[in-house]
Design a protein around this nucleic acid. Structure first.
Length: 501
RNA sequence: GCGGGCGUAGCUCAGCUGGUAGAGCACCACCUUGCCAAGGUGGAUGUCGAGGGUUCGAAUCCCUUCGCCCGCUCCA
């Protein structure tokens, strides 16, 4: 465990040192759950997204793209269930560490002829009134109080005044004052649209990109010349006000998703096959961008844990240094979302299937992936410490396709202008194709190590043979550290093949 | 949110019986260097996480706050 902890710390440290990931607002003391991506991070992130878009959208016939807005009509979140599902004020018992929904906690002041004997509190249930009255009797007897018990009037905890709440005992321990004030745990960030800050202007930052796809379903089937089965893909930021952001960029409050809603015929037996296909498609994609196969896993959600509308959900997991966690969720959601939006919007969202000559609401398979989680998994897969000629070396073995920098170009030594000029010329030439760097400072071995640590897959060195001999350069491989001599043209087509498979 | 640990240079950390900051690595410039972290010379770097208090004097003691890590809790 200690060893594993230090691994993630090493990775976090490397991410900062080499400009992959910074804590957001660092000079102001930071802000929990937000991150900034530095010069190398932004390249890596972009390459991951580009690879996904290329493979999932452009190279398929059955996919189209979308980029919907982050703030949408709040009725979308009503329809999707996000407002009702996540807006409950919660109350903690400081003593028992139990957490309750404030509207499910009921309390009453027990009074005998005007004198208060203290409050009781219980969790909502069908027979709570009986229970409350029994408790009241008990309290009266204990207090040895004479007189008539006033009717026990149970009220929800969140409707009590702050002063009253302070008198309420914890339902778990009976201790007065151990309950906290109700706190809102809605995970959606709220904002206001327009100048007025009243209820009518309330809006939310989207907690997922998926609803933007469902909300545009009608637009796309009306204009996109699509036929079921087909998918709509979207990459974009989403925001969740997580109670506890943890594990570096794994769970943050602002994150980016790559989501697909793949619409399929509504037949009851149709979805398992599509679901399986998508799991396989996604799994092999992860391998193709260089995630370590041994770290990848599948986790099937047990039936009783599924949301009521979901038919199945399989997570693709990754063994991070802090444990095995979800990278991507692939859910079979039936037609729940389209049904909801059809009802709430009052618009017909049915698709007319020419082949079947019928209208229906398609069902959907939803592969939903986090960009930042993938980013972290890529780095965890790539991070290695090995030995080169007895020296320890830190190396990021990124797949050439997603490596932030593809090639380092070096003059063998920097005090020979012809070498430097020739190398710089090649650098400018390669720059038109890829993100490459030029480095002339320090011994050549030191420069190789520098690029190893930021995962540059190839190094090209211009040496005396380039100038005086046949013009060939040496191409050095990051992973094997082996070098081969190639002409410039050969080198470029070699790189082409490796970088753009 | 609760409990525990921790915030000093880009990184790793030392200094913490109060006397106004240091090492190694990294970085920059120049010299040297004919292929895997060579060497030399010079250089930049911190309001010691932030705010407040105690004190003649605080990185060091006290309080508050922010952030990070671990556990619990919560959780599409």
């Amino acid at each position: 465990m200690a060893k594993e902890n230090s691994l993630i710390e090493e990775i976090v440290s490397l991410c900062k040192r080499r400009g992959f990931v910074f804590q957001s607002s660092e000079i102001y003391g930071g802000i929990n759950g937000f991150f900034d991506y530095g010069p190398l991070g932004v390249e890596l992130r972009r390459n991951i997204k580009d690879a996904w878009w290329e493979d999932m959208v452009r190279r398929r016939e059955d996919m189209v793209g979308l980029d919907s807005s982050i703030i949408m009509n709040p009725r979308i979140w009503k329809a999707s269930g996000h407002i009702d599902g996540f807006s409950d004020p919660m109350v903690d018992c400081k003593e028992s560490k139990m957490r309750y929904r404030a509207d499910q906690l009921f309390a009453a002041d027990i009074r005998v002829e005007g004198d208060s004997l203290g409050w009781i509190c219980l969790v909502e249930s069908v027979d709570m009134q009986d229970e409350a009255e029994k408790k009241a009797e008990l309290i009266k007897r204990k207090a040895a109080k004479q007189g008539k018990l006033e009717p026990v009037e149970l009220r929800p905890y969140d409707e009590l005044s702050t002063d009253e709440q302070k008198l309420v005992p914890s339902p778990a321990t009976g201790t007065v004052g151990s309950l906290t004030e109700p706190r809102d745990f809605n995970m959606m960030f709220q904002t206001n649209v327009g100048a007025l800050r009243d209820a009518s202007s309330e809006a939310y930052l989207r907690p997922e990109t998926a609803q933007g796809i469902f909300a545009n379903f009608k637009n796309i089937i009306d204009t996109g010349r699509v036929k079921v089965p087909f998918g709509i893909a979207q990459i974009g930021k989403a925001f969740r006000n997580e109670i506890t952001p943890r594990n570096f960029i794994f769970r943050s409050r602002e994150f980016e998703q790559m989501e697909i809603e793949y619409f399929i015929p509504p037949d009851e037996d149709a979805w398992p096959q599509y679901h399986r296909e998508w799991i396989d498609t996604r799994m092999s994609w992860f391998s193709s961008i260089g995630l370590t196969a041994d770290f990848l896993g599948e986790e099937v959600h047990p039936k009783h844990k599924l949301a009521h509308y979901a038919k199945a959900c399989t997570d693709i997991t990754f063994k991070f240094p802090f444990g095995e966690h979800e990278l991507e969720g692939i859910a079979a959601r039936g037609n729940f979302d389209l049904t909801q939006h059809q009802e709430h919007s009052g618009k017909n969202l049915e698709f007319f299937d020419e082949a079947r000559k019928e209208k229906y609401l398609p069902h959907v398979i939803e592969p939903s992936l986090g960009v930042d989680r993938t980013f972290l998994a890529v780095i965890c897969s790539a991070y290695q410490i090995d030995e080169v000629e007895g020296e320890k070396r830190t190396v990021l073995r990124f797949h050439p396709r997603i490596a932030p920098i593809k090639v380092g170009v070096f003059p063998l030594v920097k005090n020979k202008p012809v070498l430097v000029e020739r190398a710089r010329k090649l650098y400018h030439r390669l720059q038109r194709k890829w993100n490459v760097i030029f480095d002339q400072s320090g011994a050549i071995g030191r420069r190789y190590r520098r690029i190893d640590e930021v995962g540059v897959p190839f190094g090209i060195t211009v040496d005396f043979e380039t100038i005086e001999g046949d013009g060939s350069i040496t191409l050095r491989d990051r992973d094997t550290t082996e070098q081969i001599r190639l002409s410039e043209e050969e080198a470029i087509s070699y790189l082409e093949e490796k970088i753009n498979p």
